[in-house]
Design a protein around this nucleic acid. Structure first.
Lengths: 195, 195
DNA sequence: TACAGCCGTACGTGATAACGTACAAACGTA
DNA sequence: TACGTTTGTACGTTATCACGTACGGCTGTA
């Protein structure tokens, strides 16, 4: 019977490396995680595919969330986007323009964009599409001017230098109530497909 | 026998919601993922805890990485860090100071920091601690001046407005070769514990 | 009213994940 | 050298995961 040769090895190696980095034996991790030592051994060597239940326990024993543990085997290298090579975002609303600063690669963890808002303008209308994918989270920094964040029908006033973090899958947009241009730097992290 | 009432429901609901959002039936997802429809049904209802193998397949059928799928059940709400409430980072090297812009909460996906580099200064020495946790990834935007990124012994020259993304668990630091202060905005995403 | 088609779920079976125990090798100490 | 301890792994058993099949409930069409 030709065993399917499933790609579970890298995770096993990762677990082993992390465990050893924390200077723990299999039995130490077993006690901390509530998973038996032999099971851990098998998982580390890729001889078995753990259940989400035990995988979660193992991650917990390593003081990690399972999502963090799994995320370790992705992406690579260095990627530069030159100032002049920034991708302009489509201008759908007058008074709002933006550029994408992070590289257009799949598997990015965070997308950086720089938004310019004219006085009185807003990013997207009241209840428009500018809602991000489920599970995504946004961090925004006001570089210049002042803006109002409207998130889930609540309003938050933000001045220059203020920084806000919120669930980006909620209905939200920024407004510029001032007399001058406002510049907002936005970091959207952990988005999904299916817009 | 009192079944353990394991907390696997939220993931199941998530899967169901995503599947329905993509307008797919259990059998559709079964074909796309290679997991049987009855299995999917049980997972969605939290009646069983899938193997990492099949969980990966399910995520694949939803066009997601498993880490992304799992990440959906964390965090919440809005969190503001006022300009004057920024936490100053410890100044260990002369000529380098920085502030933390993102909130000091656990479970953050991305940490935003703003670094000021005096002429000739560098963030951390040559091969010093400023290496982030395994698996973390960093996106840096040069706001002012020019800097040189040294990542894994390779050098990258960056001008104002340039943006770079790289694996932050590699040996790296920034240098300011210019005559004026340089300001770098850094986004570190997906870090782990255990520095 | 039928019938064809799909939906999600209950059932029974084989595969395997996860446990507890027991073992051989490596280490430190007396 | 001999012993106690700890390391990681092999073994056999039980729990449960994952499959294929089959069923009742809906929806739309003839």
């Amino acid at each position: 019977m030709a065993t399917v040769e499933q790609r579970t090895e890298p995770l096993g190696s990762r677990i082993k490396a992390l465990r050893e980095a924390m200077d723990m034996s299999l039995r130490d991790l077993a006690e901390r995680s509530g998973v038996s030592a032999p099971m851990l051994s098998q998982v580390e060597r890729g001889e078995t595919s753990p259940t989400l239940q035990v995988a979660t326990k193992i991650a917990g024993g390593l003081e990690l969330r399972l999502s963090q543990l799994l995320r370790l085997d992705e992406g690579d290298s260095v990627s530069i986007v030159r100032c002049e090579a920034r991708r302009k975002g489509p201008t759908t609303v007058t008074g709002h323009s933006y550029e994408l600063l992070s590289p257009p690669l799949p598997g990015q963890r965070a997308e950086l964009s720089r938004h310019t808002l004219a006085p009185g303008a807003a990013t997207g209308g009241a209840g428009d599409p500018p809602v991000h994918e489920p599970g995504s989270r946004e961090t925004a920094l006001v570089e210049a001017g002042a803006v109002t964040l409207v998130c889930d029908n609540e309003r938050f006033a933000l001045g220059t230098g203020d920084c806000v973090t919120f669930d980006a899958d909620l209905q939200h947009h920024f407004e510029n109530p001032g007399k001058e241009d406002a510049i907002v730097l936005a970091v959207v992290s952990a988005g999904l497909r299916r817009s």
